[in-house]
Structures are given as structure tokens and as C-alpha cells.
Design a protein around this nucleic acid. Structure first.
Length: 309
DNA sequence: TTGCAGGGGTCAA
DNA sequence: TTGACCCCTGCA
């Protein structure tokens, strides 16, 4: 049953049409949006593929199912109000990815990577959740990171209901600050448990202001994040890119290191050299380039090896 | 069945 | 620069 049409938004020369249906929001003409690419390019850990190919997840405290049919995207469980206040920004829908891709595709390697992961979008995720998730990601693999995050939410998140389904929010810094190391460890966090508790105490106590860090330039924001225990260059760059709109951040993990050495630098290179190279070559699109490259190299060579992040 | 090697960011020595 | 950290997977 279709209801109410229609909220029109300009986006890169085409109109994104937003239609409210009985059980969600339908986005027509949503270009450059492929749920599999968005949710499986390593930027998020609470989205799960369903048997019908849709993805269901909890983000920004809400349960949502995302489904793609031909050229439309269905956001099942969302209202127009939630779309405007939350999902539009979360899915970065006001950005013209077509333009970004054509600029990146001037480079031969990225041309292939962009063709492969054509529907990637960089999500604007909650900063606290992104910080904790990527502290957990250190020395870890994606399936285990997902299990650990779910376990933290199930044990210490808030239990909520939406359209008959139960789900758990991500526990806030105040909640985690009150937990013991054993309680956090028991969720599968391992040696990262003290880092997570330390971050929770400093954030909930006001010593660290995550929103304030987001307002800094990339260099200072990165430095501030790295003052947290368990946050090195890679974790800091992921937080910058996936929750703070710092699109010049270029997270370098083993896969990105491999792809940069193999295709560009042609020899072993340290982190500093790789980031310098990326910054010169991709500039303020470095973060986008990183996502296309990561998805491309991992899907081609890595998936059966590990699933690491 | 068991046990061991390997993977992966950050910290501390 | 290097080993330890926690846990899972793959393979003898």
C-alpha cells in the first residue's frame, strides 16, 4: 500500500524521490548504493545479510532493514521523519558518488576497484560506537569483531522492540564505564577490555570530548584520538573516516598496505610512506579511494584467507 | 581427536 | 624493532 508521495531532493543532477510506504521508505533513483558493497566493505559490524539478500542491522539506536530492488532502495522500518533526521545522513545520501568515482577512475587501478565496488558509500556512524568497534578490531577478524560487538550490545545495551522484533542498542560510555574488566572480557573483547573501559571512563567523565574532536582538523583530531589507549594510527583513521567526515583519512591495514605496495609503490613501504603517497595521489578523496581499494583487494584475494580487518 | 601455526593492530620493553 | 596480547580457523 503506497502512501503519501513525495519529497524531492536534488542529488548530482538527478532527483532522489522519497516515498513513504506502509512499512518504510522507498528511495527511487538512489544511485551508487549497493547494500552488499556498503555493508561488507569493512566499515560497520552490526549489519547482517538475510536469506533474501537484504541487510538488517541496528544503527543510531534503531533497527532497519535495507533491501534493493532494481533501482530502488527500501528502508524497511523507517519513517519520513527518521529518514530526514537520521538515515539520510547515515547513508551519506546528499553526496554525489558518481562524481567521486569518475575522478578516482582516472587512475587505472582505481578504475577497476570502482567498477567492482560501484555501490560503496561511506557511512556516517555514531562516533562512540565506531571508536569501541575499531578498538575491538585491533588484531582481530571481522566475524569475531561482529560477535563481540553483538555480545556487548546484548549484555549491556538497551533492549528495544520495533515491528515485533527485539534488538539491543549499543551501550553508551556511561554504561561501559561502570563495568568491570571481567564483564567486558566475557563478551569476547580479550586484551582490549581495559582499553574499552578506559575510553568509556574518559568519555563519560568529560575528559575526552568526541564531538569536539570531530570539529578539529584531521591532523589534530587524529592526534587526540591516539591519546586513547588501544587507539593507534589505523584505529584512529577508521574513526575519522567512518564517523567524523574526515575523508582525507586513509586507514592502512595489512590489505591496504599490500594493495598500495603491489600496485603503486612497487616495493615494501612503511606506514608513513604509504600515507604520504595516498595523500599526494588521492588528496581529499583518499578515504573514498581506500574503501574501493580495500573492498576490491579483499574480495579478490582475501576473503577465503581470513576476513581480517 | 588433538594440537599447533598463523593471522592481525597496539603496547611496552 | 620485536614479542605478547585473545581467539578463531585451517591443517597436520
Amino acid at each position: 500500500m503506497w502512501e503519501l508521495t513525495s519529497h524531492l531532493h536534488m542529488k548530482g543532477g538527478t532527483f532522489l524521490e522519497i516515498i513513504e510506504t506502509g512499512d518504510g521508505i522507498l528511495l527511487k533513483n538512489a544511485e551508487d548504493f549497493e547494500p552488499m558493497h556498503v555493508f561488507e566493505c569493512g566499515q560497520c559490524f552490526r549489519w547482517h545479510r538475510q536469506d533474501d539478500g537484504s541487510y538488517r542491522g541496528v544503527a543510531m539506536g534503531r533497527l532497519l532493514t535495507v533491501r534493493k530492488d532494481s533501482s530502488s532502495i527500501m528502508l524497511q522500518g523507517a519513517t519520513v521523519q527518521e529518514f530526514n533526521s537520521t538515515w539520510r545522513k547515515y547513508f551519506d545520501l546528499d553526496r554525489d558518488y558518481g562524481q567521486i568515482k569518475s575522478r578516482l577512475a582516472e587512475d587505472e587501478v582505481l578504475k577497476r576497484a570502482v567498477e567492482f565496488g560501484y555501490g560503496i558509500r561511506i557511512l556516517n556512524q555514531d562516533i562512540w560506537e565506531t571508536l569501541v568497534s575499531f578498538i575491538i578490531s585491533a588484531n582481530n577478524r571481522i566475524p569475531r569483531i561482529m560477535r563481540t560487538v553483538e555480545s556487548l550490545c546484548a549484555c549491556y545495551g538497551e533492549r528495544r522492540k520495533a515491528s515485533g522484533a527485539e534488538y539491543y542498542s549499543f551501550p553508551g560510555p556511561g554504561t561501559i564505564a561502570s563495568l568491570s574488566e571481567d564483564e567486558v572480557r566475557s563478551c569476547g573483547c580479550g586484551f582490549r577490555a581495559p582499553y574499552i573501559i578506559d575510553a568509556a571512563r574518559r568519555v563519560s567523565g568529560g575528559e575526552v570530548d568526541l564531538d569536539g574532536i570531530r570539529e578539529m582538523d584531521t591532523v589534530h583530531a587524529r592526534k587526540s584520538l591516539m591519546e586513547l589507549r588501544g587507539v593507534g594510527p589505523k584505529v584512529a583513521d577508521c574513526v575519522l573516516l567512518f564517523s567524523m567526515h574526515k575523508y582525507d583519512a586513509f586507514p592502512v591495514d595489512v590489505w591496504v598496505k599490500r594493495v598500495m605496495e603491489h600496485f603503486y609503490i612497487k616495493e615494501d613501504a612503511g606506514l608513513g610512506r604509504i600515507q604520504e603517497y595516498a595523500s599526494e595521489k588521492f588528496g581529499n578523496l583518499a578515504g573514498f579511494a581506500q574503501q574501493y581499494l580495500f573492498y576490491y583487494i579483499r574480495e579478490l584475494f582475501g576473503r577465503e584467507l581470513s576476513g581480517s580487518r
